[in-house]
Amino acid sequence: MTEGNFVDYVKMYVCSGKGGQGSAHLHREKYIEKGGPDGGDGGRGGHVIIRGNENLWTLLHLKFKKHIRAGHGEHGSKSRSTGADGEDVYIDVPLGTVVRDTETNDVLFEITEHEQERIIVEGGKGGLGNWHFKSSTNQTPRYAQPGMPTQEKYVTIELKVLADVGLVGFPNAGKSTLLSVITSAKPKIADYEFTTLKPNLGIVKYRDYQTFVMADIPGIIEGAAEGKGLGHYFLRHIERNSVLLFLIPADADDIKKQYDILLDELRRYNPEMLDKERFIAISKTDMLDDELKAEMKQELDNNLPIPYMFISSVAQKGITELKDILWKMLND
């Protein structure tokens, strides 16, 4: 999936159908002069329904659908015939989608399962025909109910990536390179910060045909929790990951300090993120000789509070061991 095709935020206007009007028809037939009321009910207006689809990974198909309207219910007719219901409109979304009310920013619901359905706006109820109002004192009612009106709403549809492992790190830490080596994904790779502007997903093939999903999240900078850099735009994608893999380059000035800053940004954005399993991969270690690596290891053993390992995506060193560790963390 190319970066331009990854759409994870859409605003739209949704409107249900109005209910059909009940009929005030009076029965007329040869030799039956006063057949009485026989007006049918109006049909229900169409709903607008959000539906989960496990085959979708992005909201690209909704990018240019800004107005969604369901069908109106048909009017009732003679012989107590009920009008046809208005056509429901289904909006398919990837799993991990959050639907908000645009005006209040309240979360209406989340879609996390395949074919899970939730109604955003309900169609108007059809009006009752005049035969419902027949009584001993009113045997020929010449009125019927009108259908209920439409419901309308402005909604924001937001995707939070559902991945097993989320890559967390500063810009240019080597996240995209690791993803391209460990999966079949083809993220954009370049030697400058913020090469990745939108999350990339890749499927990691493990032993015995087993797989797990890894997400390359755009680089975090200090102050991201307050919206600096790409801010909340990408931090929300980390919320759904089971394991957080912190990627810190071996040439960083202070590896422990970088880890602390990254962790603090996650904590300030959402403290629940600290409950996730965490692991550190020291990247770009192909430029270290054995002596320098031993010195770093001694220092990191004393400073880093969680397990870590050295890897090199370019030289493909430590990649198989990293897969083993991540698989174990996901399945413990």
Rank of each mutant, 00 (worst) to 15 (best):
V10F: 03
C15D: 01
K18L: 10
G19R: 01
G20E: 04
L26I: 15
E29H: 05
E29G: 03
Y31L: 14
E33C: 04
K34W: 13
G40I: 02
D41S: 08
G42Y: 02
G43F: 14
R51N: 10
T58A: 06
L60R: 01
L60M: 07
F64P: 00
A70I: 04
E74Y: 10
S79M: 14
A84H: 03
A84V: 02
E87R: 03
I91V: 13
I91Y: 03
N105E: 15
F109V: 04
T112S: 06
Q116D: 13
E122T: 12
N130G: 05
S135D: 09
P141T: 05
G147I: 05
P149C: 07
T156M: 07
L159E: 08
K160T: 11
K160Y: 08
L162S: 06
L167W: 07
V168I: 15
F170N: 10
F170V: 07
V181C: 09
I189T: 02
A190E: 09
F194V: 10
K198M: 09
P199T: 14
G202R: 00
I203D: 14
Y206L: 08
D208N: 07
Q210N: 15
Q210A: 15
D216N: 09
D216F: 11
A224W: 05
A224K: 00
G229I: 08
L230G: 01
H232A: 12
R236V: 11
E239Y: 04
R240Q: 10
V243M: 11
V243Y: 01
F246D: 03
P249Y: 06
D254S: 11
D254R: 01
K256A: 14
D260Y: 05
E265P: 02
E265F: 08
R267Q: 08
Y269F: 14
D275L: 12
D275S: 14
K276V: 11
E277L: 12
R278C: 14
F279K: 02
T285W: 05
L288Y: 02
D290E: 15
L292Y: 13
L292C: 10
L292P: 00
K293R: 15
E295G: 01
M296C: 09
I306G: 03
N331K: 07
